[in-house]
Design a binder for these strands. Structure first.
Length: 284
RNA sequence: GCGUGGGUGGCAGAGUGGCCAAAUGCACUUGGCUGUAAACCAAGCGCCCUUACGGGCUACGGAGGUUCGAAUCCUCCCCCACGCA
């Protein structure tokens, strides 16, 4: 089939990467990572980034694209992924998208239309100081339509909406462009039962620590990131960061990472739950 | 053994006569998300009935008591912490 691509989704620690490499070998594919953090060069251990060894010769795209000092967004991802797909197809190979960032995957494959307004850091900093209620009021006045659908207490969304308004006057209608979803996608979901998954998560956390997660976190601080920025890089960095500051014990750190992982799995599954296109494989 | 401070919902921790089924945080459950997405946000969270408004029952270490009314005051008891022996 023309423009055939495979998308492999599934929660963290389910064994997607592994599965993807095997599939790629079998069908002649190349892998595109759909992960919001593996794009950062400095994040390796905490993002469970696949190692060159584990790639087994299969090219992996959209990894190590930028530095944590910069902010990477969905748009950047879409650019990378779209370009990669095109080039993979042109070589007669099958693009295999793998990743846990459902939002990235959906944006790309369903062709979400984003208002063409890049982040405006100065404006964001200014709006950051206001309360959510205040921001909501402003939004309501400037763009009642968007105000109706937005999460009214979510400052991050409110700020983005106002940022768009600052540039365009109002938030354009949000939606999908069928022309942008130009691929024939086969969706495969990798699932595992709860006990199995939580066991794997614990092992994985342990492995991250053995490999030097704390050192990696420390390095982020050393190159000048604020603690706040480190926290936002995900709980695999947040809790080690708290540990480095002596705010929590090692034990608390480990427990927190495990707990947050499970919570994250829940959010991920929630994201895919309604998507009937996914064929779920339950692995043991 | 004397002294002082304490025992509150899964945990931490407010409350010190009515506005308390009990603040807040965490955990837990459910859900949301259009340029930071492993981020960010929301709702629920003693039990029972009710679509809802609402109502009923049981609860703040235990047992009694004072009061119209107690998690809050009094008495005794049981535990815990620190202090003095």
């Amino acid at each position: 089939m023309k423009n055939q691509v495979v998308a492999i989704v599934g929660p963290t620690a389910s064994g997607k990467s592994d599965y993807a490499v095997r599939l790629a070998k079998k069908i002649g594919g190349e892998i595109i990572s759909c992960d919001s953090r593996q794009v950062y060069k400095e994040l390796t251990i905490g993002t469970a980034k696949i190692s060159p060894m584990e790639m087994k010769g299969i090219p992996h795209h959209c990894i190590n694209l930028t530095s944590v000092k910069k902010v990477f967004t969905v748009m950047d991802f879409m650019k990378c992924a779209d370009g990669s797909i095109t080039s993979i197809l042109s070589r007669g190979k099958v693009p295999i998208l793998v990743g846990g960032t459902g939002f990235y995957m959906q944006s790309l494959l369903d062709g979400l239309i984003f208002p063409q307004v890049p982040p405006n850091l100065k404006l964001r900093r200014k709006l950051e100081k206001e309360s959510a209620e205040k921001l909501y009021q402003i939004l309501q006045k400037k763009d009642p339509a968007r105000a109706r659908t937005i999460e009214r207490k979510n400052k991050r969304r409110l700020i983005r909406a106002l940022e768009i308004i600052e540039a365009l006057g109002k938030v354009p209608e949000l939606g999908r462009d069928p022309k942008l979803s130009k691929y024939n996608v086969k969706y495969i979901g990798i699932k595992r039962n709860a006990e199995d998954l939580s066991k794997r998560i614990e092992q994985r956390t342990k492995k991250m620590l053995d490999r030097g997660l704390i050192r990696e976190t420390k390095k982020l601080r050393d190159i000048g990131l604020t603690w706040k920025r480190i926290y936002e890089l995900g709980f695999e960095y947040k809790y080690p960061a708290l540990y480095l500051q002596k705010k929590i014990s090692k034990k608390e750190m480990i427990e927190s990472i495990n707990r947050e992982s499970i919570k994250y799995v829940r959010r991920q599954m929630l994201w895919w739950k309604k998507d009937k296109r996914i064929k779920w494989l339950v692995r043991v």
